[in-house]
Design a protein around this nucleic acid. Structure first.
Lengths: 136, 136
DNA sequence: CTCATTGCAAAGAATTTGCAAGTAG
DNA sequence: CTACTTGCAAATTCTTTGCAATGAG
């Protein structure tokens, strides 16, 4: 984890380009935004960057784990910097086992609660009760 | 609530058409599906029903409160019958107050857990911890 | 009969892809 | 130099809209 994302890119055979740096900067500055918005932000610094490059770059940055995206209702997805490692729990009411999963699955819930209810979710402590695959 | 949806439709100046009945039936049968899937289901009974009619009908049925939709990751939205009144809890770790909200906000979470983990969520018992608007 | 609704085709958004030219390493 | 990237335009995917014909009430 001491490596920079640039090194990570090179290690994987990808290249560090100004466009990629700009897109990551844009996501950082915007906190969150649609591909279109991110593209606009990038173009405040460098004109001529194409929207399709933004799409491709966001996909790459997501693959690298640097950004994440969620779908908030209709329209384009929202991209934001990936949070540090967190997890949430899945508890089976039948067999009692708990499983840790990525908080990514609760992204929409978290954003909706924030947007519609002004509620800041404590994702680390989100526990979902139900029935696991084995106890169906 | 004793009124049928057909009566509700007429009361609002809309008409009860075979297409509308078929779309609602399709949503019921499929439990959930994309407009495309719903259209395919409808066409098992009546060919010639157009996809744009399905879109228009789903919009109408949603307005009537008969169906709901959620966006699961990429791609088209998923429609399903509106659930009966249930609720989930929002608990503030600071002031301790609990608030009941619509389980609709957890739709994506529920579907994702089912799809990716084979986990059946007990939505009625879902409690989300965090900080409410007033305690920010 | 009247006007809401439908089918169809064309228009629109959002996103992806093919490819030649550009450039990081 | 090599081959990953980019810009651009065309192709896709998903959804909406215009409009004449159809059909519910």
């Amino acid at each position: 984890m001491a490596d920079t994302w640039q090194e990570e890119l090179r290690a994987r055979g990808y290249r560090v380009t100004p466009q990629r740096q700009l897109v990551l900067e844009a996501v950082t500055e915007l906190e969150h935004g649609t591909p279109e918005e991110i593209c606009a932000q990038v173009q405040r610094t460098a004109r001529g960057v194409n929207i399709s490059t933004v799409y491709r770059t966001l996909e790459l940055l997501e693959e690298l784990g640097l950004v994440k995206h969620t779908h908030l209702g209709h329209g384009p997805p929202t991209y934001h910097l990936a949070a540090e490692a967190e997890h949430l729990h899945l508890v089976c009411r039948h067999c009692g086992t708990a499983r840790d999963i990525s908080p990514k699955v609760a992204d929409e819930l978290v954003e909706t609660l924030a947007r519609d209810y002004g509620f800041t979710t404590d994702v680390h402590h989100l526990t979902v009760y139900g029935r696991c695959r084995d106890c169906r």
